[in-house]
Design a protein around this nucleic acid. Structure first.
Lengths: 329, 329
DNA sequence: TTGAAAGCGCTACCAA
DNA sequence: TTGGTAGCGCTTTCAA
């Protein structure tokens, strides 16, 4: 078995209590003793058993992270941000991928809740009611979704859409399509809302296509209806859909942006790598992860203060090759 | 605080020991008692504290997973496979992303080792020596790398390259470039070795370009040297590099596959989504994750038997649009 | 400044 | 078939 605090105590010639103190509150221990203990610990390669510690302190130093689909290029950035911030704060991360299944999500929350101090839920699929229930039991922060006053980090979807529309109308576009993501998705609703508002105030016509699955094939499928709608520009719910659009437009011999402009949302890595490169609304994904952990840590320290904190992170339009002036401008 | 086994015992009117048995070995408990306990547990919403259990059983029911970079599209598939298999076996997964930093990897292994029953290391960056050291202390399986006889799941890199070369020579190619990945990468060495052997036995000339970073920009940078080498086909260390190649070739107005054929390795999702779609050697990533967990579970049960088990998973060439006959065939 | 002892939640053993 | 007891590794009183 692994080396325990007793082994260190024996080698250092002190009691286990002293070892514990030497390692956690050195100022309560005579310097010389402290040194001896530290040396023994180092020699033996001791590192404390966090589970045992958690049992008594009631603090596991673990956080749980639940994501719907790691394969979705939106998530790795967020997860990396969470990892990085958690590591800085000396927390370990339990990760679970639910495969977009709300039932699995619920079960996973139950299982994880016991072994972590708090949970970060990425774009949770579960119902508002369930979410509220869990939030009452376990410190929890949501990413990319808001439910009531529950702690959450979100992106400025509405403002992102405003930026996209401003860009398009400045170029001269007057008729724009929106390829909608899933009706049940919080961010789709936000983006659609922002887009409608921006189009209305800019005096541009808006045609909604879909909803489609937020995947490459969804975009492929949406391209023909978009073309049929007689628009000069299209904004997709997200980049993956936009990439599908681009692919199908290319296959049909439609030039982008000469004949139609395309805008995505998220700024996933591939967006900058395709031809033409994709104009898109960029989300600070790593910051989102970090902010999520920060909020969770705050929540653990001072639930009253952070219990209803919601932060919205700014978004920024990345203008690239897929947008230009409309055909007959 | 959470509800403990004592609470359940009190409500059910039995001793904690009985609660424990009723829940874990019901056949040692009278049916009626068992029912009473279960009901009490359900009423109170009891679920056992796995950390406390682990303390005594010496089994945490957690596995640790360390990956170098979740942003690399190679990993999500593997991680999903691991998650899925772990969940089936009722294990939870600690995930750590090391950001390609070997030092972080070492530290993370140390930290995680205490709270898990075993570790899965994805394409580990650390030295052979360190790896051997850790393997002596903690059950551990490597994915995508072999070191001596340590337990590992790998892909048939050599055979994949044979398939790629066979495909190209069948089309008539006689002069092929290889864009190498990092010298330090185990899979790059394997792939290069397989490629050299296959080219030699097929009588094709091989030109090596690079090494380049295994990223899109690496591929972009490699395109010009490849063109200068006067080859009719190029095989990249991985898909991400191949995508960069494709992009730069497009920018220079070189038609693929009319003027040059391109093959990648991995079959990441984007490979099928670009124009022309990328011919590539497909790796069963989810299977790799599942196999890794299976091997780890075997290792935990019977270290002697599985201590040196290494499995190689088959690879399959996915022929797509980026390969064709050479220009003057 | 240090050590002894109690106990976190749980399981395993021995008696009954 | 059940309960009591000990103890996993650690931290935290309370005394000394």
């Amino acid at each position: 078995m692994a080396v325990t605090i007793k082994d260190v105590a024996r080698v250092a010639g002190v009691s286990p209590s002293t070892v514990c103190r030497a390692l956690s509150t050195p100022n309560l221990v005579r310097d010389e003793t402290c040194d001896r203990v530290r040396r023994a610990a180092a020699d033996l390669g001791y590192s404390p058993n966090r589970a045992a510690r958690g049992l008594i302190t009631g603090r596991t130093a673990n956080i749980g992270l639940i994501v719907p689909d790691l394969g979705n290029p939106f998530f790795p950035g967020v997860v990396k941000g969470i990892q990085a911030r958690a590591r800085e704060a000396d927390y370990a991360v339990f990760l679970a991928d639910t495969d977009e299944d709300p039932a699995a999500e619920t079960q996973l929350v139950r299982t994880l809740a016991k072994q972590v101090d708090g949970l970060v839920l990425c774009s949770p699929r579960m119902s508002e009611q369930e979410l509220r229930g869990f939030a009452a039991e376990t410190p929890l922060v949501m990413l990319n979704r808001r439910v009531g006053r529950l702690p959450a980090i979100t992106f400025a979807n509405v403002d992102g859409m405003r930026q996209a529309v401003t860009h398009l109308t400045a170029l001269g576009h007057r008729r724009i399509a929106y390829v909608a993501g899933p009706r049940t998705s919080w961010s789709n609703r936000e983006r659609a809302r922002g887009l409608r508002a921006a189009a209305a105030s800019a005096g541009a016509a808006l045609v909604e296509v879909g909803p489609v699955l937020p995947q490459f094939d969804g975009g492929v499928a949406a391209a023909d209806p978009v073309l049929a709608a007689g628009v000069t520009a299209v904004i997709a719910y997200n980049d993956v859909i936009a990439l599908g659009l681009l692919s199908r437009l290319h296959a049909r011999g439609i030039a982008v942006p000469a004949e139609i402009s395309v805008i995505g949302f998220d700024d996933i890595p591939m967006a900058a790598m395709v031809h033409p490169s994709l104009t898109t609304v960029g989300l600070p994904m790593e910051s989102c992860g970090r902010a999520g952990v920060d909020l969770l840590l705050g929540l653990l320290q001072d639930p009253a203060r952070y219990g209803t904190t919601r932060r919205e992170l700014g978004t920024h339009l990345m203008v690239r090759g897929s947008t230009g002036a409309p055909p007959n401008a």
